[in-house]
């Protein structure tokens, strides 16, 4: 597995992390949390969306590099 392939895996796991963090944060907000919890959850979702866009651009731009 090349660095390119590992990077794609890493970005995918990072996106999952942002989803975990946002669901954790929204859960806190639902359980009587503050606006800070809501903002943190939204920021995590946005970070996940940013990573997804980055991953797509990365794959498109460097498709000539091997996965091996």
């Amino acid at each position: 597995m090349s660095l390119k392939a590992f990077h794609v895996v890493f970005v995918a796991v990072s996106i999952l992390l942002t989803l975990v963090v946002s669901s954790w944060s929204f859960g806190n907000y639902r359980d009587g949390g503050s606006a800070r919890d809501l903002a943190f959850g939204i920021a995590s979702l946005l970070a996940g969306a940013g990573l997804a866009v980055y991953g797509r651009v990365f794959l498109k731009k460097f498709k000539n590099i091997s996965y091996l």
Binding site: F10, V13, S14, L17, V20, V21, W24
Partner: peptide, 10 residues
Amino acid sequence: IFLFPVVYLL
């Protein structure tokens, strides 16, 4: 990436 949620959040 695994350490952060396990130790800090959960």
